[in-house]
Write a protein that binds this DNA or RNA. Sequence first.
DNA 1: CTGAAAGCGCTTACAG
DNA 2: CTGAAAGCGCTTACAG
Lengths: 336, 336
Amino acid sequence: MKRITIKDIAIKAEVSISTVSFVINGKGEKMAISPAVIKKVQEVAQKLDYRPSMIASSLRTGKTRSIGLIVEDISNQFFADLARVIEDEAKNIDYRVFYCSTGDDEARSEELVQSLLQANVDGFIITPTKNLEKTIDMLIKMYKPVVLIDRYFANQKVSHVAMDNYDGSYEATKFLIRQGRKNIAVVNNKSGMIQMKLREKGYTEALKEEGIYDKDRVLYLDYHTNEQTRIDATISFFKNHPEIDAVLFLANYMGLAGLQAFRKLEYKIPEDISVISFDDHDSFKLHTPTISVIAQPIENIAIKSIQLLMSQMTNFSDFTIEKVLQKGTLILRESV
Amino acid sequence: MKRITIKDIAIKAEVSISTVSFVINGKGEKMAISPAVIKKVQEVAQKLDYRPSMIASSLRTGKTRSIGLIVEDISNQFFADLARVIEDEAKNIDYRVFYCSTGDDEARSEELVQSLLQANVDGFIITPTKNLEKTIDMLIKMYKPVVLIDRYFANQKVSHVAMDNYDGSYEATKFLIRQGRKNIAVVNNKSGMIQMKLREKGYTEALKEEGIYDKDRVLYLDYHTNEQTRIDATISFFKNHPEIDAVLFLANYMGLAGLQAFRKLEYKIPEDISVISFDDHDSFKLHTPTISVIAQPIENIAIKSIQLLMSQMTNFSDFTIEKVLQKGTLILRESV
DNA sequence: CTGAAAGCGCTTACAG
DNA sequence: CTGAAAGCGCTTACAG
C-alpha cells in the first residue's frame, strides 16, 4: 500500500508537480491552467484515490488547520456541550479541534498549552486557570490567535466571550426576592476567578439594594475535592443556618452537591427552600422537584468565539479585540 | 520568533545535525557518542529552549504518536468517562488522542475514519456503527492497528473489548425475579447492534428459564429522535401494560427518558415498579429514589483497549487477536 | 565516534 | 500557460 503522492499524479497525468499542486488546491484557474489540464489532473487524482498529506503540507506552510480547545473539564456537561458546538462550527470551515481538560490544575494548563503549541495548532480557545495570564501573553507575542471563553483576565488585551454572569445572578436573586424570600444564601467556590466573582457580585448587589445582604450566608466550597466532601460541607452550613429560605448555587456541580445535601437534611423544595443553580444539567430537569436554573447561552458563546478566532487567524496584524458578554436565560421550574 | 531547529543546536554546539538528532532522541549512547558531546548538546538544546517539530518527524518516520478514538457520543457520560481514561493512559505512554463522535450516523463514521487516516493516526479505537465492518477491514488491510470497544462484529478478526452485556442483564433480571417481580419489561433501542442484542438476550433467557417471558413486554425506542419522543413512546407503552411491575432499561438515555415517563404517569418507584438501568449516570444517583444500575467497568475497558492497541502498534505482523469481555457491576439502590 | 547527504510530500517564488 | 528547484525540520543508511 504505497502512498499516492502528487508526484504519482503528475507522472500519470503527464504534467508537472506544480501543476498538480495548483489544481488540487483549487488554484488552477488563478494560475491560468487550461481547463483541459485541470480536468485531467482531477480525474487522475480521483482514479488513484489521492489523499493529500496534511503533514507534508503543514511542514511546508506552517499551518495545520487545527485549533486547540482547552476547557476546565470535558466530562462536565456545560463544557461538553460547548465543545460539541465549537467542533461543529470548526468543521464547517474545515478545521479540526483538539480538546483537553485542565481539571483546574495550573501546572497542567501550562503543559496543555505547550503541547498544543508543539502540535502546531493555528489558534487557541481557552478557559484559563488563574495563573494562565502570562502564558496567554506569550501566545500573543508568538502571534498565536487566542480567544478566552467563560472566564478571562479583566485587564488583558485579549478577546473573550462569556456569559453576562453578573446580570444572570442579579436577575435570579431579584426573582427570589420578589417571591418573598428574605434569607437568601449563595454557594460559590474558592477559585476567585472573575466569572465566579461576578456571579457572587450580582447576588450581593441585588440583596444590598433591598438592605438584606448578610455576609454569613455565603458558603465557599473547594473545587479540588470529591463530591462527598462538598455535600458534607453544604449540610453543615445549612444546619448552622436554619433561617435560610432560598439558595443560589453558582455552578452546576455545587448545585448537584446541594441537592444531595438537602435530601439528607430532608428539606422540602421549594417549601423549605427555593433553589436556583447556574448551568443547566440533565439532572436538574429530572430531579423531583425540577430545579430552576440560569442557563448559559452555550451556542452563542461557541459561535462567537470561533468567529473571533477566525478573524485573528485570517488577519493577525489588524483585528479588533472584542470582549463579548452574552445574556443567560433564567429557566423557572418547580424549585422556586 | 524564528523556530529553533536541530540545525541551530548543531551550529551552536559545533557538532553535526545527525549527532544532535541522535542525542535528542536518546540514542546517543547507542550511537557511541561521547558523554561530553551528549552533555553539551543537551545543554545547548535546553538553553535555546528547543522543541522538536512533531510534524517534521512525522513526515520523515510516518508515525505521529497519536491514536484516533471514535465514540458514539462524547457528551454521553459513559463515553466521556471512557475517553477520559483512555486519554490519561495514552498520555502515560506519550501518545495523543483525537476524539470524535459518530452520533450513530453511518456516513459520519466513515468520514471520521477517513479524516483520522488523513491525520495519520497510528492506531484506532472505535465504537463502530452498523455499517462499519468493511471500513474496519480496510484499516486492517492498510496495516492500521484497530481495537473495537463497547460493540463489535461477531465474526470479524479484530480485537475488541466490551462489557459482558449478556451476563449483566441476565444477573439483573434474575435479581428482579428473586425480588418477586413477575411482569418484567425491557426497553431497548432499534439499533440491532450486538451489544444491545446481548443485553436483551440476557433478559430474555433469564425470564425463559422461569417460564415467564412475554414478548409483548419489550419496547424498542428510536435512538435518532429527541428525548420527548422517547418519553412519549415510553408513556404510551406503560399505559398499555399496567401489569408491568419491573423494568430494565438497556442504556442510560433510555433510563433517563423512562424516569421522566414514570413521573408523568405518577408511578411510585419501587412500589409500583422496580427499575434498573444500564450505565451509571449522575442523575441516577441523584434521583428520588436513587436508581439501581448495571455499571460498566469503564476503567478496565479503557486500559485493556489501550494495551491491545499498543501490542498491535509495536508488532503488527505478529500480535494475537483478543476478544475481551469484562464483567459489569450491579449497583443496588433504592429503586428495587 | 562523527558528518554529509538523501528523502518524507508538499508549496511557491521564479524563470521561461 | 507550465516546469525545475528550493526548502519546511526532521531521521537514518552510509561512509569514513
